[in-house]
């Protein structure tokens, strides 16, 4: 997992397992949007090396990484049932998201379609946290947050206001 991303053109050398895994993700407005729960590695035929192609985060991903695969898959299924239309297409079980196999689907448009995959092209910066060049409302990692807002906190007086 700790495949170092060799520097190309004098970039920083990072250890993916150390600098990416379990780091806080923030969106382009500096708002928290989950942790990096796992990494997707891809094989590049050109250079013959593995590289990190996406950050995996969100419903079920952490359980999956902790070898609670059944629980992780169950949680993803619940998630898909609650937000139909945003789920993976039929047949593409979440198991395929694990490191190694890649379904290349870069670009912002389908972030919500895949509960757990943020392509590296959306990573804007790696510091002591990972900054994403997108808005967190576009991320599936926030679906439960949105649910809690829509169904719980927005119904309580004062939920929409800052404390005063």
């Amino acid at each position: 997992m700790a495949g170092d991303e060799a520097s190309v053109g004098g970039g920083r050398v990072l250890y993916a397992g150390l600098s990416l895994l379990d780091r806080q993700m923030v969106d382009r407005n500096d708002k928290a949007c989950g942790k990096v729960d796992d990494l997707e590695l891809s094989y590049s035929g050109d250079t013959g090396t593995l590289y990190v192609s996406a950050l995996l985060a969100g419903p079920g991903m952490l359980a999956y990484r902790l070898r609670r695969r059944r629980w992780g898959l169950w949680w993803q299924r619940v998630n898909r049932a609650m937000w139909p239309g945003r789920g993976l297409e039929a047949g593409a079980g979440a198991g395929e998201v694990a490191a190694g196999e890649v379904a290349r689907r870069d670009g912002e448009a389908d972030l919500l379609d895949d509960p757990a995959r943020v392509p590296m092209s959306l990573v804007a910066g790696i510091d002591n946290h990972v900054t994403l060049g997108t808005d967190r409302d576009r991320l599936a990692t926030m679906s439960l947050e949105r649910w809690a807002r829509e169904h719980i906190t927005s119904h309580v007086p004062g939920g929409a206001h800052e404390a005063e």
């Binding site: 806080q24 993700m25 708002k31 928290a32 949007c33 989950g34 942790k35 985060a57 952490l62 990692t141 439960l144 947050e145 809690a148 807002r149 719980i152 906190t153 927005s154 309580v156 004062g158 939920g159 929409a160 206001h161 800052e162 404390a163």
Partner: peptide, 16 residues
């Protein structure tokens, strides 16, 4: 879990 948190946010921005 990396959720948004804190009293400096509106409750609707830190619902969970």
């Amino acid at each position: 879990f990396g959720w948004p948190w804190g009293k400096h946010l509106r409750p609707n921005e830190s619902s969970r």
